[in-house]
Design a protein around this nucleic acid. Sequence first.
DNA 1: AATATAAGTTAACGGTGTTAATTAAAATAA
DNA 2: TTATTTTAATTAACACCGTTAACTTATATT
Lengths: 201, 201
Amino acid sequence: MSTKERRKREIEEMRLEIIEAAVGLFLSDGYANVSMRKIAKQIDYSPTAIYNYFANKEEILIQILRQGYSIFLSSLKEGVAKSDSQDALERLKASLYAYIEFGFKHPDYYRLIFIENLHQLQRVMTEEDDRIRGFLLLTEIVAKAMSTGALKKNDAQLVSQSLWASLHGITSLLITFPDFSWHEKEGFVTFQVDAMIKGLT
Amino acid sequence: MSTKERRKREIEEMRLEIIEAAVGLFLSDGYANVSMRKIAKQIDYSPTAIYNYFANKEEILIQILRQGYSIFLSSLKEGVAKSDSQDALERLKASLYAYIEFGFKHPDYYRLIFIENLHQLQRVMTEEDDRIRGFLLLTEIVAKAMSTGALKKNDAQLVSQSLWASLHGITSLLITFPDFSWHEKEGFVTFQVDAMIKGLT
DNA sequence: AATATAAGTTAACGGTGTTAATTAAAATAA
DNA sequence: TTATTTTAATTAACACCGTTAACTTATATT
């Protein structure tokens, strides 16, 4: 009965191979400009072979969104961890910067996840593991900052949603409209983060 | 020589007919899901006839973006005008609300202009008329609020970009991710606007 | 009325996601 | 090991797509 086991592994390997090919194409060319035929060519299979491993093109995207969201979460946690300060406000600031910096470091992932396919995020987050905790992470940090008095007491859920909105605004605008006459980037970001914090204290 | 004049008018009428059909389809189905063939069918022409009036599908989009941006500008101006208060801060607040409300009233336009095709905005704004003054409008209001002391003095350009970012964040998130467990909308918006203003005073 | 110009049509090219039918390979049963 | 069944891959096909080229029809100019 080890054949079943082996086969299971083979399926997983094939799925990985497909994803690997697809993620490169999706990130460089954009989801819409990547065809099943292109993915198939890259892994030397016929286009229809892929359908034995993924129901359709969208399911490949979902899997890649999951991966991307994991990377996003790691970046966020790492960013918060690096600011080893115990000060709740510093930790909050660190997480805000970490969010924006993820966008700059992985603009293609950010675009794919948070701009072009945000409506799929529910499907990406709400499945088994702790992926959903991405937003909870921010909420917790906000709640902590409130309990220490660093932030004005308020609905932590509401406040973190407001923060997310401002973060998403600056990140997505800079990514999708790079030709605009933006203020120098670093100064813009620090100004935005400072204003966000100030608005809540 | 009046035939030339008439013909010119006919061309303009045909362009209008195409745009009229396209705008409905683009807004309801999204740019990507609308084909030249569908537009053609709606106006009872062969698909290739359209190419006598627009170079390609994208040029139709650009024209529609221009229209949409005009509507956006009108909404903004109207929103500011309605708050007939002379108080600079009130005027600023009114323009912030007007921006978000445009997004809620015309989510399809907002998505088309500011989310899916923002990179085209340069082409939409920087042509002849005063379309570009959309962003200047906000900058001017901000500058005024600074000169009256209602807002902390600062680079008005930078401040208005920061405001735009926060506005775009909340508007685009609510539009593209309606299934999320958002705080009740009206409360969310007023909280966001208040926080934005507070962050700058 | 004959000719040149413009505007519309159909046909075609190379592409898309996906399904159905078919062949080749692998696993199971005899 | 052979025969049979299951599985995985292929090719063919469908109904689309944006766009170009060739052709026909209508309009305008000579």
